[in-house]
Design a protein around this nucleic acid. Sequence first.
DNA 1: GCATATTTGTCCGTATGTATA
DNA 2: CTATACATACGGACAAATATG
Lengths: 236, 236
Amino acid sequence: MPPPSLAAIAARDTGDDGSAGRGSRSDRAADVVREAILDGTFRWGTRLSEPQICAAVDVSRNTLREAFRTLAQERLVVHELNRGVFVRVPTAQDVTELYACRRIVECAAVRCCTGEPGELDGVDAALAQADALAGTADWIGVGTADIAFHRALVALSRNERLVGMTAGVWNEMRLVFHVVGEPAEFHGSYLARNHALAATLAAGDTAAAEAALHAYLDDAEQHTLETYRQRSIAGA
Amino acid sequence: MPPPSLAAIAARDTGDDGSAGRGSRSDRAADVVREAILDGTFRWGTRLSEPQICAAVDVSRNTLREAFRTLAQERLVVHELNRGVFVRVPTAQDVTELYACRRIVECAAVRCCTGEPGELDGVDAALAQADALAGTADWIGVGTADIAFHRALVALSRNERLVGMTAGVWNEMRLVFHVVGEPAEFHGSYLARNHALAATLAAGDTAAAEAALHAYLDDAEQHTLETYRQRSIAGA
DNA sequence: GCATATTTGTCCGTATGTATA
DNA sequence: CTATACATACGGACAAATATG
């Protein structure tokens, strides 16, 4: 297999904002690699070679290793001693735990919904984004917007710490979507349910919304696990 | 103020297991510094000087910086660009969010209690530890055991990811306890309630246990915030 | 099974920029 | 305003572990 287009990654780096001002160098290196993982440039299970990526993003090994440490804590990569860092491969067991976490946190956050004006702005924005991308058949983008929608649900708790705590969950969900291959119909069916959920919330019926969300996550979990079984992906 | 006893920290390093075998050097450096923060050797707000700690734990700056990155993600220290790393100081706002997270996660975990034999072993062990330390008037130890008790409650979910997600919460709670100064009576009153909670769980009444836990966390939050107000600790 | 090449883990020295006294 | 101390980042070096032929 040919190495991923590292040149394109380096280009993204410089094209960011021109001046290399804000944030430390290792943070910006982490940004570039994170983006490449989330959009699928670095596929699940790929080993990330230090020398190659050092050259691509133009940082020293020490700086890149700090960036790797950040990404490891974000659950995007796993670090194996003396072997290097690899893009994480979520197992079937991971999928089960991921959805269990989401049921707990998302349902609790929805219960915090108060109905004050503007509260659902973030939720609606994610929905609009998903609609737009579905129109252009960009299903990876739709998957990302779906994640943004559910992250916006957690933000309803108005608890910055809870949002930060779930950051790793969304990263792993992005990897899960890449693993299942995101066929066109995978996210399409959930887009309608997201709309229904938002409407229930806007109507102020948080109890019904919570119940619907719980069922939604149960269904999505089963759907994902079924896809895992079909493709014989490791579950240990 | 005199610098903390760095020599004692270095001694702990070698006294760990003799051979410096398992884990990377940066991981072991993080272990030493983490322990020093959790047990109060490095007080809240303290700036952690790279040169001093490098000498104390006998690692290079690059390695120590990797360790700092780990501790920052664990929420024990905060990293300010070009200024260094500081032991985190939880604000009153942090306390509020912390307890909100705990209400959500701990109550959900308790609901997962099935009643199978041995399920409460971790919970009981933490209680026994707290009792023993209360007997020796080691109130810092009692606070740590209290945290271990509640961490064991989360483990009832049998969700390794949920346990990992809350790791930062327990670290910050430890810092909160250090900030409030943990007088003798601070943890003592909750020890009895922990025992009652465990008894309710052992009896299989998870609904009552969840209600009691919710009330417990409400009370502890108010108690902590009151102490914050009395000592005029920043809340922004 | 063995020798070799690659890669990682760790360290040092140093230059540059930034904050503080 | 200058000076000092410190954090940031680089490049090079070597040992150890791993992968490859």
